[in-house]
């Protein structure tokens, strides 16, 4: 659904896409707190502009892969929310039959190819998927999401090199939220660290985007993916973002964060930013409120459905190990 020109972006539609991610997770948070989610979770609240901005710039044939924090990536690519909810509740009708849980998102019907919580692991795998795509003469490109923590794994640097060497049609989407669980980036990198130099030094294109700004992410993705599609080789899109919640719980305040405090994070909330933009362009706030209410209702209906779903039976333990 890539828009051709920047001025053709339908911001209202983009806002609805982002809002779906936000509301879906807000509602899941409630159930997590009510102890209905027996799966380790990592909420994506605050980072929605990245998943949505990137996925809106992709085509249906393009594939996406992710991480432990992939509710948003999955939904932005068009993944079924009710199956995601059922998966988090451990039900048999979940997207992975309850075997995976939150950290293992998949919906191949919309080309969300999979996600893994092992940091960096999906980066070479996604590159392999893209390699196969090119090898088989198929049109799609692949976008892989990973964090600043994951980007420190050796295999990620190795993959930049390999992808450039083979001109693999892959977009590396690095979501830099500046934390690896509780480790701030300053504990992990020297002052001279410069990813742009690393990536370009390895022959990979590099762009920096404001991950709180849908438009910035979207337009830069369009540009990079355009070049990747034409055989121009891989690119890194590094998006600076904030995760609003704690690493793996819906906690909003963490005492060890300084500077990057909740107040600052909320100020830069990507949804707020986009909302102001569309209201300025003449969309009525009342209309938006109504739309949000409808969306929330739909999400709650899906959750209610998911909570009614049966658990997997004991026999399911033994299925899907081998063919």
């Amino acid at each position: 659904m890539a828009y051709l020109k920047k001025d053709m972006i339908d911001f209202h539609k983009a806002y609805s896409h982002m809002l779906r991610l936000r509301v879906a997770q807000e509602e899941l948070v409630k159930h997590y707190l009510n102890k209905k989610v027996f799966s380790m979770v990592h909420f994506y609240i605050g980072q929605e502009a990245v998943a949505t901005g990137v996925c809106d710039a992709l085509k249906v044939d393009d594939q996406v892969m992710g991480t432990h924090r992939s509710h948003g990536h999955y939904l932005a690519k068009g993944g079924s929310f009710r199956m995601l909810a059922a998966e988090l509740f451990g039900r048999v009708t979940g997207s992975a039959h309850g075997k995976g849980g939150s950290m293992h998102q998949v919906d191949r019907s919309v080309n969300f190819t999979g996600s893994s919580p092992l940091l960096g692991s999906a980066v070479p795998i996604a590159t392999g998927v893209a390699f196969a795509q090119k090898y088989l003469g198929k049109p799609g490109v692949v976008a892989v999401f990973y964090g600043d923590g994951a980007s420190e794994e050796g295999v990620v640097y190795e993959t930049y090199n390999l992808a450039a060497l083979r001109k693999v049609p892959i977009l590396f989407v690095l979501e830099n939220n500046q934390w690896s669980i509780n480790s701030p980036i300053k504990n992990r990198r020297s002052q001279g660290y410069n990813l742009e130099k690393i990536a370009t030094g390895l022959g990979v294109k590099y762009e920096h985007a404001d991950g709180n700004d849908y438009e910035d992410v979207y337009t830069k993705t369009v540009k990079l993916v355009g070049s990747i599609r034409k055989g121009g080789g891989p690119a890194v899109l590094e998006c600076l973002v904030y995760r609003h919640m704690a690493h793996s719980t819906p906690l909003m305040e963490e005492k060890h964060r300084t500077g990057d405090v909740l107040e600052e994070r909320l100020k830069k909330d990507p949804l707020k930013k986009l909302k102001i933009k569309i209201v300025m362009s003449g969309v009525l706030e009342k209309k938006l409120a109504k739309e949000e209410e409808n969306l929330r209702q739909k999400i709650c209906t899906d959750i209610a459905w998911a909570l009614e779903q049966p658990y997997p039976s004991k026999e399911e333990l033994y299925t899907n190990v081998y063919n």
């Binding site: 451990g90 979940g94 075997k99 849980g101 658990y311 333990l317 033994y318």
Partner: peptide, 16 residues
Amino acid sequence: CPDVPCPTSSALSEFW
């Protein structure tokens, strides 16, 4: 434990 990977759903890990 059974000779399969450990699943996530508590409905299954109960038997693991």
